[in-house]
């Protein structure tokens, strides 16, 4: 066992990469839940994004087009959910589960020809030419553009929800859909937009796993990342900044346990691989031990809205 081989600077840089997929998915789901919809299909949208991004980028040779198509793929899949939940008034929990089951099957079907194929490289940037600085270089300036996109999205979502009129309307739909409807806001259209945004974010997050983190296609490769993203929204108490802290915390645990595996710690590999899930559960317990309402859960979360009531 050689723990001195673990370099803290590289560890922090790596944890940002490890956190990016779930951060993207979680910030998307945050917006969906703020609009009062619980979409449990994050895992399905992520894995669909993962194969869509990989396949398209392999075919076109362009990671950018790949990520774009992953966003579109995730959004399209989420629209199935949106139509069922908003217009067919189906149960959100069951429909979200259906989305996950369908997404897992669909992705594995689409991925048949791409087993073990390497996607084109998503290059690391050298932001402002500062990537070569010691310590802060690799952590702050040396990532690929998706990492910066995810951070930008967190700031964007935070500002949107806090400062804009549109953000206020979206939150009102999530707190009391009937009241928002009575004021003349198009509840279903707003929710549809939020769900599509969540789908696109989850798609890009999934593509980041298949195109940067691994990078190749493996069946079921998201391995619960979507569920962890859902847990992060609860952990973050429906606030963008705290979701980001949670994602980085989780990324840190993932990277640390991988480093410990590589360093040959005496703990069996299987138990180390369990740790991210166990710690997610532990964090959920700690955070939900308080009063659920005070945490900031949107009041209408998960409720079906029908204008006739």
């Amino acid at each position: 066992m050689d723990l001195s081989a673990i370099n803290p600077v590289l560890l922090i840089a790596a944890l940002m990469v490890a956190a990016t997929p779930i951060l993207l998915a979680a910030i998307g789901e945050l917006v969906v839940e703020k609009a009062g919809v619980l979409n449990l299909g994050v895992e399905g949208m992520m894995i669909t994004g993962a194969i869509a991004g990989l396949a398209i980028s392999v075919e076109t040779g362009s990671p950018l087009i790949g990520f774009l198509c992953a966003a579109i793929g995730g959004a399209l899949l989420s629209l199935i959910f949106a139509v069922l939940v908003l217009y067919f008034l189906s149960n959100q929990v069951a429909t979200g589960l259906a989305l996950t089951l369908f997404g897992l099957g669909l992705s594995s079907m689409m991925g048949q020809g791409y087993q073990g194929v390497k996607p084109p490289l998503t290059e690391k940037m050298n932001l402002l030419g500062l990537g070569d600085l010691p310590v802060v270089g690799p952590i702050l300036f040396g990532h690929d553009w998706i990492v910066y996109l995810s951070i930008t999205l967190v700031i964007g979502v935070w500002a949107f929800l806090k400062f804009t009129r549109a953000g206020l309307i979206l939150r009102s739909v999530g707190e009391n859909a009937e009241a928002a409807h009575a004021l003349g806001y198009k509840v279903n259209l707003i929710r549809m937009g939020a769900i599509a945004f969540g789908g696109a974010c989850a798609g890009v997050g999934g593509a980041y796993i298949s195109m940067v983190r691994v990078p190749q296609w493996v069946d079921g490769m998201t391995a619960g990342a979507g569920w962890i993203a859902l847990a992060l929204v609860v952990f973050g108490a429906w606030r963008a900044g705290r979701v980001m802290v949670g994602a980085y915390l989780f990324g840190g645990i993932t990277v640390l346990q991988l480093n410990l595996q590589a360093a040959g710690v005496a703990i069996p590999v299987e138990y180390l691989s369990m740790s991210p899930y166990l710690i997610t559960i532990l964090v959920l317990v700690l955070i939900s031990a308080g009063r659920a309402r005070a945490l900031g859960a949107p009041a209408a979360l998960g409720q079906t809205f029908h204008a006739s009531r």
Partner: peptide, 9 residues
């Protein structure tokens, strides 16, 4: 698998 998911939809 996709077929079964579709059925649920």
């Amino acid at each position: 698998q996709a077929f079964q998911g579709m059925l649920l939809f």
